[in-house]
Design a protein around this nucleic acid. Structure first.
Lengths: 225, 225
DNA sequence: CCTCAACGATCAAGATGTTCATGCGCGGCT
DNA sequence: AGCCGCGCATGAACATCTTGATCGTTGAGG
């Protein structure tokens, strides 16, 4: 795990880096706000420890800019300011947690673990449904010895249906979830993709199939368990 | 937003509920650990405020059970225990944040907002870069009066470059981030997409352009601010 | 049981997006 | 100048997506 430390006081920065490195994180130090922002936006880090008072851009501005640009890297603010109003400012600017100096190494590490845990929230990379396995990274749908590649839209539709077997999804729901809200696509597209998927399920000789519920939508039917 | 308060001391529980309700959250109180766990697992709440010492199951056990069962509802632990070792236990059990009593309402609210924000993961829907605006939901690139639609890959490349102006991205980095690690695509594809994007920037008469840094990669050049 | 209308399935064709091989041109080097 | 290697632009081949047209299916009502 890569952690970025944005801190201008060298002794503190080193101490932080040391603590983190002893716990098997990879830590890098940047000592000013301008570089801090650039590095934080790089997406190379899994977490940012951010001081507020910094030469160049301050910590609040950095986290605000990150969030404005859609960067979701967790940020833990670390400052000497203990005022509640400072904490509120930091958290509302977009930080995920806020610690005041001085702090204990153990608590810092626990908070770092808590933030990284959320981040990692490792998505399973496979959905299983009856005799089907959908690989979420390669977009391959496997059934016994056979496999087929799903195109982007096919994959999204399959993922949604397989994620909640037996739940009925209306065409409108599918349009919203797969094509995007506001999408001006035709419901016929949904029908077309259901058709493509059925053809592939058929080719795979899967026991699973897609039911049509007239006027309501579609669902995956699991063969009775 | 629905918040579950698991707290056995009625006065504190009421005070919390009051603070939250004043800020337009819907709050419900449960005064023992057994009900706390049942409610928390119900998926009806967007956040759980959890005391540690409780009749029935204690807070640590509750959060551990939640996580073990795959429940990802954010948990903010609220306790009188100020020992670092308690905080570490709470966070490592699966809590997302930990506050010690007494606490100020403003800080509590800010931490609640921070946790709910993650949950909702409200993505900003625009990146700005020089005179360009990239709409993240419609994939439209706008410059003054003109706009163009970007295809999926064009969009991903543009987003990456625009998210860190002036940073150089190697073709390999672009391949990994846009096409995916393990992707077996050709670096020529990157060149092709850079070419497509330049054509569009040109059509938009943007002052922004994409620099080639020989042997290193590409970057967005912001006209000197 | 038949008819009809509404809904759904499938197909074919065109639009759009993606990949990749090719040839050109520029800049650095000898 | 001439060579070399990298990057650029383009077009052909292919994949994917969307849509309208057509045909099948279903179920209510005669």
């Amino acid at each position: 795990m890569n952690i970025l430390i944005v801190e201008d006081e060298p002794r503190l920065a080193e101490a932080l880096a040391h603590i983190l490195q002893e716990n098997d994180y990879h830590a890098e130090i940047v000592d000013n706000g301008n570089d801090g922002l650039t590095y934080a936006l790089s997406d190379l880090y899994d977490l940012v420890l951010l001081d507020i008072m910094l030469p160049g851009k301050d910590g609040l501005e950095i986290v605000r800019t990150m969030r404005r640009q859609g960067n979701a890297t967790p940020v833990l603010m670390l400052t000497a300011r203990t005022e509640t109003s400072d904490k509120v400012k930091g958290l509302d600017a977009g930080a995920d947690d806020y610690m005041t100096k001085p702090f204990e190494a153990e608590e810092l590490l626990a908070r770092v673990r808590a933030l990284l845990r959320r981040q990692g929230e490792v998505i399973f990379d496979e959905i299983t449904c009856g005799d089907l396995k959908l690989n979420l990274s390669t977009h391959e749908l496997v059934c016994g010895p056979k496999k087929v590649h799903l195109s982007h839209k096919e994959f999204e539709v399959a993922r949604l249906l397989m994620s909640s077997p037996n739940q009925v999804f209306s065409k409108e729901t599918l349009l919203n979830k797969v094509w995007g809200i506001d999408a001006e696509a035709n419901e016929n597209s949904v029908e077309a993709y259901i058709s493509f998927l059925r053809k592939k399920l058929n080719f795979l000789n899967s026991t699973v199939d897609i039911n049509t519920i007239r006027m309501l939508g579609y669902r995956i039917a699991l063969p009775e368990a």
